[in-house]
Computed example of a mutant assay.
Amino acid sequence: MRIGIDLGGTKIEIIALDAAGRTLARRRVATPQGDYAATVQAVAGLVAAVESELGQRGTVGVGTPGALSRVTGRIKNANSTCLNGQPLQDDLQAALGRPLRIANDANCFALSEAVDGAAAGAETVFGVILGTGVGGGIVVRGQALTGANAIAGEWGHNPLPGGAAPGPACYCGRSGCVETWLSGPGLAADHLRVTGRTCTPEALVAGAAAGDADSIATLDRYAARLARALATVVNLLDPDVIVLGGGLSNLALLYEAVPRLWVPHVFSDAIATRLCRAVHGDSSGVRGAAWLWPD
């Protein structure tokens, strides 16, 4: 049995999978806000509850915002700031009494879709999360890449190609990052800058469907920016499949518009890379954490 944990900013989710990837159990609890010790105990409690329910012990993988520093072994770059600087892997292993594996949540998303999702069977997969933030993960031949600095796939904090300088300020301290343009808040902020009107992504989609010219223009700008940003990924990584997840992956227009719009920016006479929506949706992160133990 494989157990996966998705350690999010607002909720902690657990899933137990059998050898074939079928769901045996699934639970979620609210994340203790700003309380690191309580977060560790919440994860340990979920594992204990699921193993007691199923009457068996499993391997444990954890998907978390940020990554384990190669220097300190502690969490870095997490937007759940109470985790930063903490020895999360050591503390969870002590609480559970066994080794476990930790990976960035975007890596877990990409791994899930590469194992038995939209990119099943593909050699090289780039997984994209378009939500409150923008994340990315890389899977090659079924293995998630971490990288020498534990930042493989972190395309959200590169400058948007062709973006107006200096661009919107980013929490990372830089300006004009991909995340500031392509996240949900970034999409809403772009509409506000251009039209002076506050609008949620859901309302933009509804407005565009009703023929509102401003909503259509905002979504068109978004698709063009996503195409330019992903073209740099194609030029650098040349993946077989790019899988979109997160709330904005539900924008149906992206799957026709982006492959058409990235053509002028990709350094190739033909583009075989497929752009797909995640098969497992919101479950991909927690499933991918379980798949951190492939055997």
Rank of each mutant, 00 (worst) to 15 (best):
D116Q: 14
S283Y: 14
D6Q: 02
D18M: 08
T180D: 01
P99C: 05
F109S: 02
I242Y: 00
A169L: 14
T10P: 02
H280I: 05
A49G: 12
D190T: 13
P99Q: 08
G137N: 10
R221K: 04
D18E: 04
A25R: 11
A209G: 05
V50A: 15
D91T: 09
P161I: 12
L226V: 02
I3E: 00
P159E: 11
A148L: 14
D269M: 07
A208E: 02
D6Y: 08
G55T: 05
V71G: 04
G97Q: 07
L230D: 02
D35V: 06
I14N: 04
A189P: 00
S112C: 11
S249L: 00
G281E: 08
G85F: 07
D6S: 10
R225A: 08
L219S: 01
E123S: 14
P239H: 00
Q33R: 15
T59C: 11
Q56P: 00
L130S: 10
L100M: 06
V60L: 03
L226K: 07
G21E: 08
T31L: 04
E154R: 09
I75D: 03
V62W: 03
A217I: 02
A38K: 09
H157K: 06
T180V: 03
L54I: 00
Q86W: 13
N107S: 05
V263F: 07
R101N: 11
